[in-house]
Amino acid sequence: MKMLGLRLFGPTVMLGIGLQELGSVPLGCLLFYLWLAGLPLADRLLLQRHTWIEAVKYWGLRYNRSDTLAGAALGLVILAVILGAASSLWMYLFDPFNLRVLLANWGFSGSGRPLLIVVLIVLNPVLEELYWRGYVLQELKRKMSSLAAIGVSSLFYTVYHLLLVVPIFKPPFGWLAGLAVFGAGLVWGWMRVRSGSLLGAILCHLLADAGIMIVYGLYIA
């Protein structure tokens, strides 16, 4: 049970330390991504003594054509929805001044911002999917049904996103954004279970994150 708690709450704790205690997006990302990458690697390779090939297979890092195409198609739809919602509802979703102040306080500004944007578009979807759908979901399936495992992993995937979206959006849209994150987690978990591959979820997630960063570039930066 202790290990399960670490898996479920660890990412939220790491991101919370970076944002709430240190007040820094870069430091929060560093702690967060070290956890996302480090725990699956340590567990599979050191504790379980899997080979790299066994670990990669366990995480679902294998090509599945139909899953990859479905991930690309769904990701483009999500990207279009994000851009459409932002363009038509911008004044209702965000307070531009307060949002810029918040992001500046978090350290999301200055010369390091382009690198951070690249990290959020490329590295973030890979590590989040590896952790939640490649690792945690598989561990939960050993204790419960696949449907329950998808729900539980999606719930805890959503929790730390609330640390970000609730302050960013005007009320009550932060909580609605949290529901959207939960829905995305359910879909990506289902894709992982159905296909046995993680690549479709990664690609879909990457396109969704790209949409968010495009909105940032168009309306906030």
Rank of each mutant, 00 (worst) to 15 (best):
N64S: 13
I78V: 14
L69K: 05
G10K: 02
I53R: 14
R62G: 04
G75I: 06
A42N: 08
G23A: 14
A72L: 05
L46V: 15
Q20V: 14
R44H: 05
R62P: 06
N64D: 15
A80N: 01
L36R: 03
L27R: 04
R49W: 12
R44E: 09
D67L: 08
G75D: 00
L39H: 07
R44K: 11
G60D: 02
Y92G: 09
L22E: 07
P11K: 13
T51G: 06
L34T: 15
L46Q: 14
V81D: 03
S66G: 05
P40E: 06
T51R: 07
L22Q: 08
V56P: 10
G16C: 14
C29Y: 12
L19A: 11
G23F: 08
D67W: 05
L19Q: 08
A37I: 11
S87W: 09
G18C: 04
G16L: 11
G28H: 10
Q20C: 09
S88C: 13
I17H: 02
L30I: 14
I53N: 11
Y92Q: 09
L46W: 15
G23N: 06
W90N: 04
L45C: 12
I82A: 00
G84H: 03
L41S: 05
M14S: 13
L89Q: 02
L47W: 12
E21R: 12
W90Q: 06
L74P: 02
Q20G: 04
L46A: 13
P40S: 06
A55G: 11
T12Q: 13
I17E: 05
R49D: 14
G84I: 02
E21H: 11
R49Q: 15
W59H: 05
Y58M: 12
L89K: 04
D43T: 03
F94H: 02
V81A: 12
L34G: 05
L69V: 09
S24G: 11
A70K: 07
G23M: 12
V81N: 07
D95E: 15
V25F: 14
L36C: 12
A73L: 06
L83E: 00
P26N: 10
L69R: 09
R62M: 06
W59I: 10
F94A: 00
Q48E: 15
G23I: 08
I53F: 07
Q48Y: 10
G28S: 14
S24N: 12
I53G: 08
C29S: 14
L34N: 02
L15K: 14
G84P: 02
Y33I: 13
D95I: 11
D95M: 08
G84R: 02
V81M: 07
G16Y: 07
L19K: 08
V13M: 08
G28F: 08
L46G: 05
S24W: 10
R65N: 10
Y92W: 13
Y63C: 07
G75F: 00
D67P: 01
H50N: 08
K57F: 07
S87D: 03
I53W: 10
A55K: 02
P11T: 06
Q48F: 10
G60E: 02
Y63I: 15
W90V: 03
I17C: 06
R49P: 08
I82R: 01
